[in-house]
């Protein structure tokens, strides 16, 4: 473990908690893409299947349980409890256009063809594009609630910090995982224009609105 990965995991945890609190406190999931949350739940489910038979550390197991529980809790809030506030008119991204290429790519490029490894690879590729329905929804509505923009910033910052972690691990323990690094870079690039808008607008106290 290194400080960059720890900060990344904390950002990730903060993002998930901020989203849960936003929906719970405002009793509304307006502006939130349920489809992205479905993809995130799928990412954690496919990546953490080893939760029950591979023990890395208490921290690792606890965080996996938290991520799994919170992602399904978020799905419950969106699709069951506050279903009436779910903006399905704007959450129209075709996620099959993300799932199918990720399945194909994880069969073409993977470290190993064991079921657990294939699921891990699939989850890495899927996580890289899981935010697209949410970014698509923000572009369709042309704006996002400030709290939603904080959620997106924390989520984007988590993987950006993981890139620093990978650089650090490369130089300190000559460890590198090309699949995770390439997917992580793509994932972070997808947030680039959002980061620009967040820093130039939200941090100056303005609303998060896309230029018309």
């Amino acid at each position: 473990m290194n400080i960059f990965r720890l900060l990344g995991d904390i950002c990730h945890l903060v993002a998930i908690i901020v989203l849960l609190l936003k929906i719970w406190k405002t009793r509304s999931c307006a502006g939130i893409s349920g489809k992205s949350q479905i993809l995130f739940a799928l990412v954690y489910t496919t990546r953490y299947v080893d939760l029950f038979f591979t023990y890395v550390s208490l921290y690792n197991s606890v965080m996996k349980v938290i991520f799994l529980a919170s992602s399904y809790a978020t799905l419950y809030l969106i699709y069951v409890k506050f279903k009436a506030t779910y903006d399905f008119n704007h959450d129209t991204f075709r996620i099959e256009f993300l799932l199918i290429p990720c399945v194909i790519l994880s069969l073409l490029i993977t470290h190993d063809y064991s079921p657990v490894e294939l699921l891990w690879t699939f989850s890495i590729y899927l996580e890289a594009v899981a935010i697209l329905p949410q970014l698509f929804m923000v572009s369709k509505t042309g704006e996002a609630e400030t709290i939603t923009s904080h959620y997106l910033f924390a989520l984007g910052a988590y993987r950006a910090l993981y890139i620093v972690n990978w650089i650090y691990r490369y130089y300190t323990e000559s460890f590198i995982d090309g699949i995770a690094v390439v997917a992580g870079i793509i994932q972070t690039i997808l947030y680039a224009d959002f980061f620009y808008l967040y820093i130039t607008k939200v941090l100056k106290g303005k609303d998060f609105k896309l230029p018309a």
Binding site: H12, T54, V56, F67, H111, N165, Y170, S174, F175
Partner: peptide
Amino acid sequence: AIAKASHDEL
């Protein structure tokens, strides 16, 4: 540089 078989990252 090696990619560890067991993934120790979240």
